[in-house]
Write a protein that binds this DNA or RNA. Structure first.
Length: 573
RNA sequence: CGGGCUGUGGCGCAGUUUGGCAGCGCGCCUGCUUUGGGAGCAGGAGGCCCCGGGUUCAAAUCCCGGCAGCCCGACCA
């Protein structure tokens, strides 16, 4: 391919609205163009990256008999009412709604409903199961805050797979197989993606994993135990409280030192305010949070004031209306004393077991007052200790007792065991079993953010000069820079030899046939980031060589032009 | 959805305070010269100064109202 024919304009200056390096480079190198916030065009080079990623995904899923289909973007709202998810529109599912003839539609933010309808019309018998399908398609989500180029967009390309099994054990088997496929895909993409336990959110289901690529531009954080390998998104991570690095001296005479006394704390009772009023560290305060469980029971969670509460899936925080109804609970001054007797369950974070240095400050259950010097077991009881605060760096691993590490990362994929979440509520999503009974499918779903991966790879592979695409996704393997080709017959001849060779070896390349000064060609080649840059110029031809630069290592190798085959060996490795 | 900043040729910006010819750099076009790391000279094209209303002899500039983009927060499959 000749560079002059590509729809491409490289920019010397950084676009004003790009905040991170991958975004700047993708725009400057002419891979993507923004149309509106979170909405982009893939230019020819960008589309090649995207297609190469898609091809890897296709190839690997196909190996595991996951079959490609293409579902509609436009989905009738009816099916979302059937699954019960239309209530999520605007909140967890910021969908684009469209009015149409004969009803309202949604621009597909995800496809569980559609695929359930699709497969249920075909797979009627256990003999048809298990079966898995996938598609690669644009999804629409009206993100509140698009960011970082392709990292968070309102229009995104996703590879989403769905599995249908006849039993739970078979579903688990399929789940594990497809997770293996995902691991292979990320390996081929040269990405170090870590599968972590996660919360399932609006997609639903119980067991689920996110694939995280550690990166400073990540919007997620996961914990990882370097000892036993336990890893989980902080939204789902459990821990055993402070780890070995954390000092927490317990006063030997705690029972004498800590005296329960009422203190005046006028205001809204916030942790900030009370710790300032009493001159105490936030960790000495206990934050009590009331929430309703999935079963409708009200519980009270206790965590240290310097930590964040981790709301369990299915639970919701008490609203002001709820507080008005639950008379014993005083918002802002909620405390644990006597709550078990009133029938509330009181769950204390495991950190509170360790951290009772001088007694805690707790809410006094009346406006403008707290108690100081409170001890668990003496002044109030708890129903249970559990891990209900968000993990912090250095916390203790619940599996092995070692310290957890916090890692910032980008979520590139998410897999779910859905079970009967959709098949159980949507009509006809059943198969006839060997026993002659109708049973709902055991489903799973699996999504990879294809367009997001372009940004993630760019962020992982670049330097100050430009991009450095891995061979597996690069638009072209070699970028040929001829110097003064128009004037130098020998350069022309050598280029012809090289082009013939590369074509015969099926090695893709672009040839910079523009008649520009060498500096511009070199800069563009580095910016565009093909894995190899081949320089053909008079100076090195006099020595009988051409120069092959590995863009990843920036190493330059002289290639004898009587032995051009070496290029193929270098590139095909 | 709250707070802040910004909208001026394709890109990056100045001009707005104090109203008075629409500017600069890069890029683009033509010609000549140049040629191993973003060349030089000469000539040229390209603008609804985000949109709407108002004040004024006169508005990119002042006033009112919108819209869009970016950042922080909230939210997030």
């Amino acid at each position: 391919m000749q560079l002059s024919k590509i729809l491409l304009k490289t920019l010397r200056e950084n676009p004003q609205d790009a905040e991170v390096e991958s975004h700047r480079l993708l725009v400057r190198a002419g891979y993507i163009q923004k149309l509106a916030s979170g909405i982009h065009t893939f230019l020819p080079l960008g589309l090649k990256i995207l297609n190469n990623i898609s091809d890897i995904i296709r190839l690997e899923l196909d190996k595991d008999d996951v079959q490609e289909i293409l579902m509609p973007v436009l989905q009738p709202v009816d099916i979302w009412e059937e699954s019960g998810r239309s209530k999520h529109f605007g909140n967890e599912l910021p969908a684009f709604l469209v009015e149409g003839r004969g009803g309202n539609f949604v621009l597909g933010p995800t496809h569980e409903e559609v695929v359930t309808k699709t497969v249920s019309q075909i797979a009627e018998s256990f003999r048809n199961l298990p079966v898995s399908v996938f598609q690669i398609q644009t999804k629409f989500r009206d993100e509140a805050r698009p960011r970082y180029g392709l990292l968070r967009t309102r229009e995104l390309i996703m590879a989403d797979a769905y599995s249908f099994d006849s039993s739970k054990s078979s579903m688990i088997e399929t789940y594990s197989k497809i997770n293996g496929t995902y691991a292979r895909i990320f390996e081929k993409l040269n990405l170090n993606a870590v599968a972590v336990e996660a919360v399932s959110g609006a997609i639903g289901g119980d067991v689920n994993h996110e694939y995280m690529v550690p990166s400073p531009i990540g919007e997620d954080t996961f914990v990882k135990c370097q000892n036993c390998g336990y890893s989980a998104n902080v939204e789902a991570a459990v821990h055993n409280g402070y780890g070995t690095k954390e000092e927490h001296s317990v006063d030997k005479n705690l029972e004498q030192v800590a005296k329960l006394e009422e203190v005046f704390t006028p205001g809204n009772g916030s942790i900030e305010e009370v710790s300032a009023q009493l001159g105490m560290d936030k960790s000495q305060l206990i934050l009590a949070i009331a929430y309703t469980t999935e079963a409708g029971q009200i519980q009270i969670g206790l965590i240290p004031g310097d930590r964040h509460f981790r709301l369990q899936p299915g639970c919701t925080l008490l609203s002001d209306d709820d507080f008005a109804r639950e008379k014993p609970l005083v918002k802002g001054f909620l405390g644990p004393i006597g709550k078990i007797d009133l029938g509330y369950k009181v769950i204390a974070d495991l950190t509170l077991k360790q951290n009772r240095h001088h007694g805690f400050v707790i809410g006094a259950d009346k406006e403008n007052y707290h108690f100081a010097g409170a001890l668990i077991g003496r002044d109030f009881e708890v129903s249970a200790f559990d891990s209900i605060s968000v993990a912090q760096d250095g916390d203790m691993c619940q599996k092995c007792g070692q310290n957890l590490e916090l890692i910032r990362a980008v979520e590139v994929a998410h897999t779910f065991q859905l079970g009967h979440k959709y098949s159980g509520v949507m009509s006809g999503a059943t198969f006839l079993g060997q026993d002659g009974k109708l049973t709902p499918y055991y489903m799973g779903c699996y999504g990879i953010g294809v367009s997001r991966l372009v940004s993630v790879i760019a962020e992982s592979f670049h330097d100050e000069k430009g991009l450095k695409w891995p061979l597996s996704v690069a638009p072209y393997s070699i970028h040929i820079v001829p110097l003064h080709m128009k004037k130098n017959k020998e350069v022309q001849d050598r280029i012809e030899d090289i082009v013939t060779l590369l074509a015969s070896k099926n090695i893709s390349f672009i040839l910079d046939d523009r008649d520009l000064s060498p500096g511009v060609s070199f800069k563009d080649a580095e910016l565009l980031g093909m894995p190899f840059i081949l320089t053909v110029g008079g100076r090195s031809l006099e020595r009988g060589v051409i120069e092959l630069k590995n863009r990843h290592t920036n190493e330059i190798t002289d290639i004898d032009f009587n032995n051009l085959e070496i290029i193929a060996n270098k590139v095909l490795v």
